[in-house]
Design a binder for these strands. Structure first.
Length: 431
RNA sequence: GGAGAGGUGGCAGAGCGGUCUAUUGCACUGGUCUUGAAAACCAGAGUCGGGGAAACCCGACCCAGGGUUCGAAUCCCUGCCUCUCCGCCA
């Protein structure tokens, strides 16, 4: 969320930003409520001051009658204060709801607009799109032929959108994790495995909406817990309420977790196979930085994602996401879209990773601050997140790009140490 | 799961209804002294919010949330967390 004082002082810029992002927010109402709240706050503080004064004087008063009359005065002041406080709290709550609906400000270089045409391709991966001398198949057909997924089994036990990985696909999942973790450790990340559940207030802070008809996540009944849609939630919540030292920033953490998403309202061609599923494994990168470091860190995370896919020798392009497609917390977002030759009529780009700079939007709600030595007070850290690897999407990219005319799939060299073979071939019938 | 102990400033650790504006020590910052440093001495110092050009003033904060009271770090209730012991378990 944005700072309330900032909103009041920059109302016009905030309005323009909402318009660019296609967000409807009642800013005028917020400004009105906020000014009422300020007035109430002053009343509360004044009444408190008076009541404190009275309470203090009673201890020093010897005369019994005088004490009684002061007590009565104190009682009345506190009662009046409580009424004002209740008014204030109600206004504060109202303002908070409106405030939460306002998206982050936007990086000046982010393209303005919405839809695919507005997004800008900023670079391509090192490996060009491969040309096939046969009609490439999609991952569903490849997986079926090589016995790599059981979609029906997932559907039977759990429901549509769930799956079993089988055979080499399991090894691929583990190999991908091991491959990126090696890179991340080498780059100074602290690697972690995270809880797959988090408290609703943490989900809120990150920008998710647990519970309610619009929710993107699954919630646990009779608790304040939800399954995480990404480790961004737990990694971002990790220092909630904490004050870090400026000397320990930037902090680079990676987390391996399962991701659970309801994907409410997402249907169509792209739901085929394991492209859009309700559960998958992901290695997520997260960074806490000083405000002046976040732009550089964002570029770095994007380059790291590129390095990971270049290392897998998969063609991709990088997209600078336009304002209309940015989620609420993001100040700027880059997506990596891998070439998926089996998709659509003649192949399509499909999102495989994404990295966002959320500036202080999340840290303000989660109350994650930093202290600068020699400086008074604290400031909010900047938070950034990026996908190191989302297993299912990466598997799709591998299978479709590495498929061979004979029906086999070559294992990317970078993964062979952990898969233990260089090619997936059809299983022998009856084997 | 059972029993017990405890959560107070960066850390250690007092306070048990109004002299708390939270004692004290260590660490920290500035100053005096010194060629420099150490020691000693003096002073200062938290966070959030409100007001102010500023000096500064005001409110809130002793794990969290409720309650009692004119007044709560202190008393009562609930929750969370930590530690010790026992049981159980991968």
């Amino acid at each position: 969320m944005l700072d309330r004082k900032f909103i009041v002082e920059n109302a016009e810029a905030v309005k323009v930003n909402c318009r660019n992002r296609g967000v409807v927010a009642d800013l005028d109402k917020l400004l009105e409520i906020e000014s009422q709240r300020r007035a109430k706050l002053n009343q509360v503080q004044e009444l408190n001051r008076k009541a404190n004064e009275v309470a203090k004087s009673i201890g020093q008063t010897k005369d019994a009658g005088e004490r009684e009359s002061r007590k009565e005065q104190g009682r009345q002041l506190r009662e009046e204060k409580d009424r004002c406080q209740a008014d204030h709290d109600r206004l504060d709550q109202e303002a908070h709801v409106l405030q939460c609906a306002i998206p982050n400000m936007t990086h000046p270089d982010a393209p303005i607009g919405s839809g695919d045409h507005a997004n800008v391709e900023v670079r391509r991966g090192r490996h060009p799109v491969r040309t096939f001398d046969f009609k490439p198949q999609d991952h569903v057909a490849i997986g079926e032929r090589l016995d790599l997924f059981d979609l029906e089994g997932g559907s039977r036990t759990t429901g549509h959108g769930f799956y079993f990985l089988r055979n080499e696909a399991v090894l691929l999942e583990l190999a991908l994790q091991r491959y990126v973790l090696g890179i991340l450790v080498g780059d100074g990340f602290t690697i972690t495995t995270t809880p797959d559940l988090a408290q609703d207030r943490i989900l809120h802070g990150i920008g998710f909406m647990p519970r309610g008809p619009e929710t993107q996540v699954y919630s646990i009944e009779n608790s304040d817990l939800s399954l995480v849609g990404t480790a961004e939630i737990t990694l971002g919540g990790l220092y909630s309420g904490q004050t870090l030292e400026d000397s320990e920033l930037p902090l680079k953490i990676a987390g391996v977790s399962h991701c659970f998403r309801t994907e409410a309202g997402a249907h169509g061609r792209a739901t085929r196979g394991i492209y859009r599923v309700h559960q998958f494994t992901k290695v997520e990168m997260f960074a806490y930085t000083l405000p002046e470091q976040s732009d550089t860190m964002h570029q770095y995370l994007c380059e790291l994602e590129c390095r990971i896919f270049d290392g897998l020798e998969i063609p991709y392009r990088v997209i600078d996401t336009a304002t209309g497609d940015l989620g609420g917390p993001a100040y700027r977002k880059f997506d990596l879209e891998a070439w998926m030759p089996g998709r659509g009529e003649a192949g399509e780009w499909g999102e495989v990773t994404s990295t966002s700079n959320c500036t202080d939007y999340q840290s303000r709600r989660l109350d994650t601050r930093f202290r600068t030595k020699g400086e008074k007070g604290t400031r909010f850290v900047h938070t950034l997140n990026g996908t190191a690897v989302a297993i299912t999407r990466a598997i799709i990219a591998i299978l479709e790009n590495y498929q061979q005319a004979d029906g086999s799939v070559i294992i990317p060299e970078a993964l062979r140490p952990w898969v233990g073979k260089d090619r997936i071939t059809p299983k022998l019938a009856g084997g």
